[in-house]
């Protein structure tokens, strides 16, 4: 792995955002709309919060954290799609660039986007709803990191499918993360799910993060068990996604499709 090649690609994406402010929409516009709509719904529902303490914290916290996962996934997918849209993929892969370097660069870009989106949503939630995400405490940090890794795994998996099946699969970049949302226990605990969905939810790292977050708010105790589950599952999924990408890349080269991605 050569750092200069990773930084070259990161630099390319940062310059893109500087030159094309409309691309900031994915960092500002959608998270802002989500926060406004769901934030006010939360305030409204909070009036009838009988029996549910810390409703605003649960809901707004979940909303912001889900957005972190989604932005992490988007960071990977959009970086890849940018190369397809600009017909630049071949230029990159006829250079000494390695697949691992390419993926590392997209992960770094994803972190930068997550930080940008998180600063904005956390700040706005504080301004609009007096909601301070940091009341969850320092335990928030390892859980947030786990969400970023989950986003990476979904993003790399999605990108591998787009690489293999072309732009027809592009819709997955916007939709695949939401497939996991119902079983990720974002806005409700795993216990409300039917038993068979509970089993699936236990295999999703994000469900352990959101269960953990609720546990922190309710009991103030650090749910180490949930963190270990989330981290363990994330390692498995991230390694699996990277291997899957490598296999797809090999198949694409075998089928001579690399030059045709995007057609």
């Amino acid at each position: 792995m050569k750092l200069h090649r990773i930084l070259a690609l990161v630099n390319r994406h940062l310059m893109l955002y500087k030159r094309s402010p409309q691309r900031m929409m994915e960092i500002i516009y959608w998270p802002l709309l989500d926060l406004l709509v769901w934030g006010f719904i939360t305030l409204y529902l909070a009036r009838y919060k009988e029996g549910l303490p810390a409703f605003v914290t649960f809901f707004l916290g979940a909303l912001i954290l889900w957005d972190i996962l989604f932005r992490a996934q988007q960071g990977i997918c959009i970086s890849f799609l940018e190369e397809i849209w600009s017909r630049n993929l071949l230029n990159l892969f006829v250079s000494p660039l390695r697949v691992g370097e390419f993926l590392s660069a997209t992960m770094l870009v994803s972190i930068i986007k997550v930080i940008g989106a998180a600063i904005m949503t956390v700040g706005l939630a504080y301004l609009l709803y007096s909601f301070n995400l940091f009341i969850i405490g320092l335990s928030l940090i390892p859980f947030v990191l786990n969400l970023v890794v989950t986003g990476w795994a979904v993003g790399i998996f999605t990108t591998a499918i787009i690489l293999r099946f072309g732009q027809e699969a592009e819709v997955l970049a916007w939709g695949l993360a939401f497939l996991f949302q119902p079983v990720s226990a974002v806005f409700y605990p795993v216990s409300v799910l039917p038993p068979f969905l509970q089993t699936i939810a236990h295999g999703i790292p994000a469900s352990h993060v959101f269960e953990g977050m609720r546990a922190v708010i309710e009991t103030k105790a650090f749910p180490l068990n949930e963190l270990i589950w989330a981290a363990g599952l994330n390692v498995v999924y991230l390694v699996g996604a990277i291997l899957f990408f490598n296999v797809m890349f090999r198949i694409v080269k075998m089928k001579g499709l690399l030059v045709r991605v995007g057609e």
């Binding site: 200069h4 070259a8 600009s86 000494p96």
Partner: peptide
């Protein structure tokens, strides 16, 4: 002719990215 470069970047920015890639 059938391969392009990122359209939103300037000529120099695009070339800088590849200069970095090739060190």
């Amino acid at each position: 002719t059938y391969v392009s470069l990122p359209q939103s970047l300037t000529v120099r920015e695009n070339l800088r990215v590849f200069a970095q890639l090739y060190q």
